[in-house]
Write a protein that binds this DNA or RNA. Structure first.
Lengths: 204, 204
DNA sequence: CCTACCGATCGGTAGG
DNA sequence: CCTACCGATCGGTAGG
């Protein structure tokens, strides 16, 4: 009953826009009045969909997680388990960041940095999403090792940490310095770490 | 004449507190009224030191850069050039983050993520500080290579990117998940990358 | 789902 | 360096 079934399309439109704004200005920088003006609706009308700013923030995180799943995770699961799937996951992530699916780069990078030193439900939701992602990367690495495609002494959590480090930092540096070279550096580092060939990325 | 020489100690106290707040809540989350209340002075009195919020933000960045220099850079320059100096620089950074010299972790990580998608002087100052740091790491790596302590085909910019990735991500994950293991992972990754022994960090 | 409003807080200023 | 204030905006509510 909550969420007015008939208006779910409108609700999704609102949240997709909210995620775009939050990727640039954060979930605190996202104001209800500005979002309403942006969408050409009244502030109290928009407010009614969520009931509080915190609920709007939490719903925005859920929508962004859906985008992330569609853009990064799902297409990688079409590749069979192994090093190639690990590479696909990383390359999809870098492409998602590079294409500015969210205009402020990775939504979860922005809001992670914003809430990492504050308590509350928003922080908990952001942290949970990040943990799920870390575990997915580690599990995918673990599969590749079990298949004999990575050294036997590979520690999945450690390698996942390293891969995620390259991705996050490419996102951060490309935004702060308007420098696409960061993505090239991340791909070089990830390829070296996985021992995959420099195939798709060297037409020039 | 700007900055009232007689009050420079007060000014420094204000700015050091401002940097602490900004490391948690960002440079936009830093409000003049809250900062004044925190320090027990009037809002307009504090305002008079800076003249605008943007000038307060820029002065806060300069103070934070000084802390960074004292905590991370200077002590590493006491070690002679080479791989050990690179390691020292990285280890100092991780310690600076881990000891919460700023309560919200690395000041520049927080404000970098906050301003990476907004134009303006604050962003430019944050980006310039980040670039200076990247170049210092790359130069230190280049020195080590020239001394024959790293492989001849080491690319300083690439290795600097990788080292910085591990540091930034340790900071981010330790905060978001309240998990000190991130620092261990970063040190493991950096040691492997530099080929330095697991000396100081394995008493247990 | 709208207009009109609430108290709180924002950056900034007047006046002393 | 203070008190007192400015208009703008914040999240949220009343009333229809």
């Amino acid at each position: 009953m909550v969420g007015r079934p008939r208006d779910e399309r409108t609700r999704n439109t609102i949240l997709r826009r909210a995620a775009d704004i939050a990727s640039k200005d954060g979930l605190e920088g996202l104001s209800i009045g500005r979002l309403a003006a942006d969408l050409g609706v009244s502030k109290s009308g928009l407010f009614g969909y969520f009931g509080s700013k915190e609920e709007l923030q939490l719903a925005t995180i859920r929508i962004a997680a859906g985008v992330y799943l569609d853009e990064v995770v799902q297409p990688a699961l079409e590749v069979p388990p192994g090093v190639k799937r690990v590479w696909r996951l990383c390359d999809n992530w870098l492409s998602y960041s590079e294409r500015r699916v969210f205009p402020g780069g990775c939504f979860f990078f922005t809001v992670g940095a914003e809430f990492d030193a504050r308590p509350g439900r928003v922080r908990d939701a952001v942290a949970a999403a990040g943990l799920e992602w870390s575990r997915l990367v580690a599990r995918t690495v673990g599969d590749a090792r079990r298949l004999g495609e990575l050294a036997e002494d590979t520690e999945p959590d450690q390698l996942a940490f390293e891969l995620i480090s390259f991705m996050e930092t490419a996102n951060a540096l490309s935004l702060l310095h308007d420098d696409p070279a960061a993505y090239r550096r991340a791909r070089t580092a990830i390829r070296a770490r996985l021992g995959v060939a420099d195939s798709a990325a060297r037409p020039s």
